Simulated scan of single mutants.
Amino acid sequence: MQITESRVITAEPDRVWKIGGDTANVADWVPAIEKSTQRGDLRHATFADGGGEAIERIVEHDDQQRRYAYDYVSGPLPLRSYRSTFAVNDHPDGAQVIWDAEFATASAEDDAALAQAIAGIYRAALDELAKHVAATQK
């Protein structure tokens, strides 16, 4: 299953990347995550409302291309595989953030439900990222 969420943020791409590309501090702008830390290439993300902790491995991080990718290692979600990519691209109105994921669960029914949940998390996070970027421009 694959999902993609995108948002144009009216700000310089490097400003958006400074916040969005900081892999250790995603809890600052992802509402579904209440706490995040990173040791080496492993990021620990604690989901809000007692949702448990996920461990993700940052498998690629490129400041020049403003892009990173991560794999889900373990946690509360019923995933067989999960790779997500977060990228900040140039756009005539500022920056286009593209966040996508390709994943598989044990069943097609779980895939569809999880795709809807992840897309909602990504949309809410991109809205919050836009607010954080706007606050740093004042």
Rank of each mutant, 00 (worst) to 15 (best):
A106K: 14
D100S: 15
V133W: 04
D22K: 01
A87D: 11
D90M: 12
V97T: 03
T4K: 08
I58S: 07
S84T: 14
D41M: 06
V97F: 00
R43H: 12
F86M: 10
A113S: 09
L79K: 06
S6D: 03
D49P: 05
A101G: 15
I3C: 13
A54I: 06
I98Y: 04
T46V: 13
S81G: 08
A135F: 08
A106N: 14
A124R: 09
P92H: 00
E53C: 03
Y72F: 15
R123C: 09
I58L: 10
E128T: 11
W99F: 11
T4S: 12
G40A: 12
R39N: 10
L126F: 05
T23W: 12
L79R: 05
A54V: 09
F86R: 06
A130I: 07
R123A: 14
D62H: 07
G21M: 01
D41C: 02
Q116L: 13
V133L: 06
E53D: 05
D110A: 11
D127F: 04
A119L: 07
I9F: 03
G94D: 01
I19S: 07
A115P: 02
I118Q: 10
W99G: 08
I98Q: 14
Q96N: 12
K131R: 14
E12D: 15
T136G: 08
A124C: 02
T85N: 08
A101L: 08
K35T: 06
D111W: 00
R39D: 12
D28S: 15
A32R: 01
A124T: 09
V30C: 06
A125Q: 02
I121S: 12
L42G: 02
P92N: 02
A27S: 14
A124S: 12
E128G: 02
Q64F: 03
A130P: 07
T105S: 14
A69F: 04
R123E: 13
L79Y: 09
A112T: 13
D62E: 10
P92A: 01
A134L: 05
V133F: 03
A113H: 10
A135D: 15
A101D: 12
A87W: 01
A134C: 07
A135Q: 13
H44V: 05
Q96W: 01
A112L: 14
I55N: 04
L77C: 09
R83L: 03
H61G: 03
E5M: 09
L79M: 14
D28W: 02
K138F: 04
V8L: 02
A45G: 08
D28E: 15
S6M: 07
R83A: 06
N25K: 13
E12M: 01
A48W: 00
G75N: 00
G20L: 15
A135K: 09
Y122M: 10
I19A: 09
